[in-house]
């Protein structure tokens, strides 16, 4: 559960937003919309602990984000930025396995069968595993990034414009995958169809 209490954010003395209160229950799907510069992406950065609020606090599963618990809090979350990035420089399998080299994830390295099963849920064929990262489309990257987050066992998905660079097929697959899951989703989006599927819409 995410609780946002009396949050205020300023940049160079300019108030970006204030008095923000929000309770996000486990499994809820939140859509955030609004003009650019209103602090939507900053809210995602606040939840991830990359920036600190000027006033107020954020609780993740009842604990306030601090320097001491930031790693365990970040490890509950998956972040998909607007321009999707994949780590590694070889093929898709390498990119999927890359985060499992990090010490905290090492013991959870998935077998290839599990990876393929997860890829199929989001309409990706197993052959993509041997494809070079430089040869896959933006939509495929987005779907692979979701699969990585899922394999890492993340529960809270922070998505920044998740459908903005997707073709229709990828968009449908991503929506189905995200909205049929039990995960908590906080998404920034301008896509009305996406926003309509969210359980709550926050206007910035």
């Amino acid at each position: 559960m995410i609780e946002i209490i009396n949050l205020e954010l300023k940049f160079n003395e300019k108030v970006i937003f204030s008095d923000l209160n929000l309770k996000i229950e486990r499994g809820e799907k939140i859509g955030i919309k609004g003009e650019s510069g209103k602090g939507k992406t900053s809210l995602l950065n606040l939840i991830m602990g990359f920036i600190s609020p000027n006033i107020g606090k954020i609780l993740i599963d009842k604990s306030e984000i601090s320097h001491n618990n930031i790693i365990s809090i970040r490890n509950k979350m998956a972040y998909l930025p607007q321009n999707i990035l994949l780590m590694g420089d070889k093929n898709v399998l390498d990119a999927i396995e890359y985060p499992f080299h990090y010490s905290i994830n090492k013991k959870n390295k998935p077998k290839e069968g599990k990876i393929i099963a997860e890829l199929e849920k989001i309409n990706l064929k197993p052959e993509i595993l041997s494809t070079s990262i430089s040869k896959i489309s933006g939509g495929e990257k987005q779907r692979i990034a979701l699969v990585i987050a899922k394999l890492l066992g993340r529960e809270i998905f922070l998505l920044d414009e998740p459908t903005s660079a997707l073709d229709e097929i990828s968009r449908k697959s991503v929506m189905k995958y995200v909205f049929e899951s039990n995960d908590t989703v906080v998404s920034v989006s301008h896509d009305n169809e996406w926003l309509n599927k969210c359980s709550k819409i926050i206007n910035f």
Binding site: R74, Y79, Y102, S103, L152
Partner: peptide, 20 residues
């Protein structure tokens, strides 16, 4: 910074995120 942040969010500690 986005890539570095992404590595941290994937579970990297600071040294691991700095590796590349």
């Amino acid at each position: 910074e986005e890539r570095y942040k992404y590595a941290l969010m994937l579970g990297a500690n600071r040294q691991e995120a700095m590796f590349p």
